[in-house]
Simulated assay, not measured.
Amino acid sequence: MIDTHCHLVPNIDDGSSSFETSLKLLRQMVEDGITHAFLTSHYLPGLYQYDRALYDDRFEELQSLVQKEGINITLYPGFEVLLNPTSLTDIERFNLTLGNSHYVLIESDLNGLPKDFYENIYPLLRNGYRPVLAHAERYVSIMHKPHNAKELMEKDIYLQINAGSLLGKYGEKVRQTAWVLLNNGWVHLLGSDSHANEPNNLFPQAIKLIKERIDEHTVQLLTLDFPQMIINDEQIPLFYVYIQSSHHHHQHHKSFWERIFG
């Protein structure tokens, strides 16, 4: 499995505070079945703002320690960029993408997507970037109207949800919203969003629930197939769930969800 959202590069944002802490969490992730992870440090002008070289130095040191300790996980650089008027400039200047791809993990105001949201995101799309909205289920505007998630996808924006949300870590309303998005196919990636300040065993618990309530194929799409497409810089299908009708003799039409890839 591939974790596409976690904050384990030490002393660069509000995530891990030491290499020792990061190594402990990475060992736990391996035990939980995670084989690859994007280390997505916050990039927030005025608060978490730094040169790419600083990030790379700490990322490479952590990677060296992982290899030295024999922790069997592949790490990729990444960032969680707060969307603002300077985002395109910052992304281009510091290469704030997921790995070597054109995918960019973005976040916005959790109280509701601001009026200039699209004004700030369209330049990214026009310049060939593929925005991924982090923890989409936690935005008030999406909680109030989950269909807003589909509208984002129709504008070529991908959606990531947190494993903990499916388990109620952020409250009941967020939990309900996460499952609505998942059931409708309005999710492309699952991430732990680990900040190294809590046990990281929420990921396997969430995986177990998705398998039970939906199917194993959905788990594979969100934790393996789609993340691998980011690694390969390939285009993830925005819509992969369709409603089909089937005819049965002496029965009414029946609708069912079909989850496909490609």
Rank of each mutant, 00 (worst) to 15 (best):
H102Q: 08
G99K: 00
L65A: 03
Q67E: 11
I231Y: 02
I243P: 04
Y240E: 01
A196F: 11
N11C: 07
D3W: 10
P114V: 09
I161H: 09
S245M: 10
M143D: 07
V9S: 01
S18Q: 03
T21C: 00
M153R: 09
H147K: 14
L159C: 14
H252G: 15
Y158C: 15
Y103L: 01
F117H: 05
K208L: 13
L166Y: 03
H247F: 15
N184L: 15
E69R: 04
L75P: 07
I207F: 12
A149Y: 07
P204M: 07
I260S: 03
D13Q: 09
A206G: 11
V219C: 09
E107G: 04
H102D: 12
H5K: 14
V81Q: 02
E107A: 10
D193Q: 11
P131L: 10
L110Q: 08
L8Q: 06
R27K: 15
A136F: 10
G171P: 15
N183P: 02
S87W: 02
P114F: 07
R175A: 12
R259I: 12
H147D: 14
P204G: 05
L23A: 03
H144D: 14
V174S: 11
K254H: 15
A178F: 05
V9W: 01
P114H: 02
V180N: 02
E137T: 11
K169I: 13
Y240I: 00
L221M: 08
L110G: 00
V30P: 09
K208T: 12
G168A: 10
M1T: 01
Q63L: 09
S16V: 13
D51Y: 02
N148D: 12
S16Q: 13
K208I: 06
L190K: 00
N127E: 11
L202V: 04
Y158E: 14
F19Q: 00
L133P: 05
G15V: 10
E31M: 11
I214A: 00
S246F: 14
G15S: 14
K145F: 08
W179F: 05
A37P: 13
H247I: 14
D156A: 11
P199L: 06
L39D: 11
I2Y: 03
P227K: 06
F38P: 01
E234G: 09
L209W: 03
L26Y: 10
T40N: 12
S18H: 06
G128V: 02
D57P: 00
Q220E: 11
K68L: 08
R52F: 05
E69D: 10
D14C: 09
I71C: 07
S141M: 07
L54N: 01
S192V: 12
H147I: 15
G99R: 00
H7T: 10
Q49C: 07
L222M: 01
Y118S: 07
D13C: 09
E198K: 13
S18L: 02
H195Q: 15
L47P: 00
R259G: 01
L105C: 09
A136I: 12
V140F: 13
P199E: 08
P204Q: 07
N84Q: 12
H249P: 05
F203S: 02
Q63R: 13
P237I: 06
